[in-house]
Design a protein around this nucleic acid. Structure first.
Lengths: 349, 349
DNA sequence: TTGAAAGCGCTAACAC
DNA sequence: GTGTTAGCGCTTTCAA
């Protein structure tokens, strides 16, 4: 069939062991020998057989990303960041889309992972602790993104701060009845942290969070629209709403428009994400550096795979409040429409 | 280390060969034996070693998706569809993000693919024919998405028709000066087909396509905005524009808004894609079933991998024109058409 | 229907 | 610095 290490060894007049060493850049190889082997390998257009190499070495050169979705902004951005660094380092990326926990149809990937990968990146699997524990039982180095996990490396934003910053921004604008659209009833720690930030800001301003001003948007555009519609139909609707994701904020804005309410000047919206289209839709948001978070998680994982002694760390990515038209000062809506992107940073490692 | 086929064989009192056959559902195994082996394997929680199996069989049980991007709507949707069917069939999905042709930093994946996968899905690599030819030289079954390739399976929409339908829709609305925003100077066949559809519709209506009404939007939101801005600054701007992708249409609409021009009533827009947010932004678009296209391509590929005799086929996915607020009948706007119509607008939806 | 045995192509001790 | 030699854990003839 194809060229094997033996062909290279013969052509170069050395043993297969030497070829292996030379090509992998291991020490204890004469520079001349190494060069000759390289030359010959190149001429023959030799490529190591991954299966053979994996079987013999026990390493797969592959990492898996476990993600609920592929085709949503947050997740595809993360994937792209991960892919970036893996490709640089010549590591294969295996993707497992596991769907919403609960609705999940596919088998748990745990058995499908054994012997296939050297490391794992788990993207915001909402508190489906059982499943995550199964994954960890594989004993592989693991990085989490968007969620922390005791004893594991993770890359998140400071969700409490993000919720607080967005809410405080609305408070600073003069709002007092500030609602909240969150994801789903019992979701991730990330979600409860954002809610906590919201409450902290409210209480810090002497405002009582009002349960009747909260609704679930299920992290989707449609869900956000429904949630906002629900809030608008309450006896005493909010004058501003903190929304936990840009997608839901988009839906919320559509709901406002359908009710003839102007986003920003009539009811203010602030959310979290930094979705590409938030600018287009003029949505105030706390941006999280999602692609970078993917990169960071991948780098941390590779570091741990190379050097097992590396300690797991909880990495906090910085966020930035980006003020746009969906939040304008309460009493002065007629005044200066405001510069685009007055922004302030928060959060550091 | 972990349980091997030998452990199972011994525990079941058969040879490893029988275990292998039994577990893979091959014929010529006594039903009782098979059941016993299954039982034992389950008790031992045995999982075949992929590396060993791959080395021995020469099959990898893996397919690769080669895509310019991961984190854009079209591509992540395709990936999601592909992932769906692969996961059902227990096939691993390897993702290679190769970036924009030209700007491409990563090595050509061709060498990285050898021996790693049993099949390939190539997603709209714009006419970077050299690279594609390299990929095909691997001799692997290959499916294309968004592009056709002589002698290969492909899943596309009828791009000519899509361009024609979108343009005809604008014509039907009464527009005569219809511009076009396309991707980039020499891009994919898909792009030139859409342009051809545009011209066919124009000529069919006795309208002369006007080169001064065409601009490039580079398939991005920002690019679409720039392109529309450029069109608006031409001596005699269009009253309607056919835009080749929703992302660019979003940008185009922003450009209109920044110029105080109402999308739809002042200048009409129709595009192609069916992006999730096109509904939110009220954009008329020819929807392509992107997730399904991914599924279809994966299924076609698997079919060819199983049965080499399967003929390659060019699969055309159906499209649907979805009319929204970005294109409304011309009569209502005839008085402003043709000039840089500005009209004070008050919020209607 | 089952088993014995020969690899698949490479890596990793261990000698030299 | 380099070669020899065992495997890695499975699949697949070929015989029985």
């Amino acid at each position: 069939m194809s060229i094997t290490i033996r062909d290279v060894a013969e052509a170069a007049g050395v043993s297969t062991a030497t070829v292996s060493r030379a090509l992998r850049g291991l020490p204890h190889v004469d520079p001349e020998t190494r060069e000759r082997v390289r030359q010959v390998a190149a001429e023959l257009d030799y490529v190591v057989s991954p299966s053979a190499s994996r079987l013999a070495s026990g390493r797969t050169g592959t990492i898996a990303v476990i993600t609920p979705f592929i085709d949503r902004w947050f997740f595809s951005s993360v994937l792209s960041g991960v892919s970036d660094v893996l490709q640089e380092r010549d590591v294969d990326l295996l993707v497992f889309e596991v769907g919403d926990p609960g609705t999940n149809p596919g088998l748990p990937p745990e058995r499908r992972l054994r012997g296939r990968v050297d490391g794992l990146i788990v993207v915001t699997l909402p508190t489906d602790a059982m499943r995550v524990a199964d994954l960890l039982m594989l004993g592989l180095p693991t990085s989490f993104i968007g969620t922390t996990w005791e004893g594991s490396t993770s890359v998140t934003i400071d969700d409490i701060s993000a919720g607080r910053v967005a809410t405080q921004h609305l408070i600073n604008l003069g709002h007092k009845r500030i609602g909240m659209i969150s994801g789903r009833p019992r979701a991730s720690t990330s979600q409860s942290h954002r809610a906590q930030g919201y409450r902290e800001a409210m209480e810090g301003a002497g405002l009582a969070p009002d349960g009747s001003l909260e609704a679930y948007g299920y992290f989707s555009v449609q869900g956000g629209e429904d949630a906002m519609t629900a809030l608008l139909s309450r006896p005493n609707p909010p004058s501003a709403v903190f929304v936990m994701s840009d997608d839901m904020a988009f839906g919320a804005i559509r709901a406002l428009q359908r009710h003839g309410i102007r986003p920003g000047s009539d009811i203010a919206i602030a959310s979290i994400d930094g979705h590409e289209l938030a600018e287009l839709l003029d949505v105030t948001t706390v941006r999280q550096p999602v692609v970078d978070m993917g990169r960071t998680a991948a780098e941390a994982l590779l570091a741990r795979m190379v050097d097992d002694a590396t300690e797991p760390e909880e990495i906090i990515s910085p966020t930035t409040l980006i003020v746009r038209g969906s939040s304008v000062p309460q009493e002065r809506t007629a005044q200066v429409a405001g510069s685009q992107g007055r922004s302030a940073s928060s959060g550091d490692a």
